[in-house]
């Protein structure tokens, strides 16, 4: 009884750094399977968002810049961004990907807040993200803006930062 209670309690606890990232196995907009476990070996920024979430949409340009800046790391299979949408309407989701010029892998079960993935990541509000390390463990939770950029840069190494962002690179010690 105690063990069950403890187990249920643990299920309701927010994820912590060092936890194994729950599997995400959903479909891409064109129906192909997308699995977080297939990205093992890379640093993965899992971005939970939705077209109905204004702050999430506002963040997509920053993620786009990051994807460009760290393109070398993406090419070298060191880094990836995985967008997980909590949209309900596929048309809005797909239109949003086009409108906000989102080019990194995307997936969704189109179940809004009923999404089992949202539950497994214990998401209470959007935007929400986790950085998953090469071993599939959570390395950071809900970093945004410059702290997120710096964290990713630090994890994949400055060698991956391209010429497109010399100001940011030179600002680093």
């Amino acid at each position: 009884m105690f063990a069950l209670h403890t187990s249920l309690q643990a299920q309701n606890q927010p994820l912590q750094k060092g936890d194994l990232a729950p599997e995400i196995s959903l479909l891409s907009p064109d129906g192909r399977p997308v699995r977080l476990s297939d990205m093992k070996g890379k640093l993965v920024l899992v971005d939970f968002w939705a077209t109905w979430c204004a702050p999430c949409v506002g963040e997509q340009a920053e993620l786009g810049k990051m994807y460009t800046d760290f393109h070398a790391a993406v090419k070298a299979d060191k880094f990836e961004i995985l967008g997980v949408s909590l949209d309900k309407d596929k048309e809005k989701w797909v239109n949003g990907l086009r409108k906000y010029n989102i080019t990194w892998p995307q997936t969704s079960d189109l179940q809004f807040w009923k999404s089992p993935v949202a539950k497994s990541y214990r998401i209470e509000e959007l935007p929400f993200n986790v950085v998953v390390d090469a071993n599939g463990r959570i390395a950071a939770i809900n970093l945004h803006g410059e702290p997120l950029y710096s964290f990713i840069a630090g994890q994949i190494g400055s060698v991956s930062i391209t010429q497109s962002n010399p100001t940011r690179r030179s600002a680093k010690p």
Partner: peptide, 17 residues
């Protein structure tokens, strides 16, 4: 006037922006 008409009996208009 938001993401989804989850409330029982509500009418779905969609995001008001």
């Amino acid at each position: 006037i938001g993401p989804d008409a989850v409330i029982k009996g509500s009418v779905d208009i969609g995001p008001g922006q």
